[in-house]
Nucleic acid binder design. Structure first.
Lengths: 156, 156
DNA sequence: GCTTACGATCTACGCGAGCACATGATGTGT
DNA sequence: ACACATCATGTGCTCGCGTAGATCGTAAGC
């Protein structure tokens, strides 16, 4: 069918049939972050703090360096974030009795509550956006997005 | 069906059924840009320069400020980029006879050639990624992505 | 015990990006 | 003519971030 060239991404002669993926995805990411910002502000969290809360009890995180890498933050930058979260009793940070060099990080009940409340609010905003898509496109988009996110090629 | 809760984004009790969109899209965008970088280097273009070439004859751009806004760049930053592109004869920049304050920007033939070559190379890389998706998901992903990119809510 | 390795922390440096303001050339309204 | 707006451009400030190196406490191997 005539769509074949478009499906493969380029027409037979030169000019591509779609914008670059990055040219669509990067601005979309920017817009999503901008939409998140007021929600985060309302919950008293920075992006980094929110990232920390999100990742904290997903995978058992042992070292702060590991956490920093997981959320793609600099390990020197994460410290102030953790200090703040700890002082607000959202996370716990105490020396591992097994190896007192490492600080064991864990969410407090309050931290978990705040994370859930924030994430719910954020995803409600996202749902309003997704509502603009026809159901089929929306499902396909999410499925494709999750699959791409899981690709090891993009992990690093 | 059991998928309904997941489709609406949250389960009945609290914890969401999917990662935040931004948490998937932003890293994906980063990865795509990282994948683009070597290609751009090979073609002697920066991101900004490539953005300029991409946008230049899509919409009739009159002022440099308009171009800057279109590619979401700072209008003071774009000048050096234009200087470089002009000195390499990839774009033309000359005063509008109608209004000699504005500089009319246009792609040269060589600029168009370089843009096409670069974009083709970039999209080939993207296609290798998309190839990991089942055809149905891939089509749905692209369709959803294009629809979301076109949403006016995200435009600004 | 000594040496080496590792984790957390701090400080200093540099880069890239956005923002605000100034300037010079040019248009436009009165 | 004069006041004001607009465009391109330059300059300097500030932020956020990443990198590198130093320090301190702690482990682990010899």
């Amino acid at each position: 069918m005539a769509e074949n060239a478009a499906d493969s991404g380029t027409t037979s002669r030169g000019r591509p049939a779609r914008p670059d993926l990055a040219a669509m995805i990067v601005p979309l990411g920017r817009a999503l972050m901008a939409a998140e910002q007021p929600v985060l502000d309302a919950h008293g969290l920075t992006m980094w703090a929110y990232s920390v809360l999100l990742h904290l009890d997903e995978t058992p995180i042992r070292t702060q360096a590991a956490l920093a890498e997981a959320i793609r933050a600099d390990k020197t930058r994460i410290i102030a974030v953790l200090d703040d979260l700890e002082s607000r009793k959202l996370i716990r940070r105490r020396p591992d009795p097994e190896d007192r060099r490492v600080r064991l990080l864990s969410l407090t009940a309050e931290g978990r509550r705040l994370r859930d409340a924030t994430q719910t609010a954020i995803q409600q905003g996202e749902e309003r956006l997704l509502a603009h898509l026809p159901a089929a496109d929306r499902a396909g988009f999410l499925k494709g997005l999750r699959a791409l996110s899981a690709l090891p090629e993009l992990r690093r």
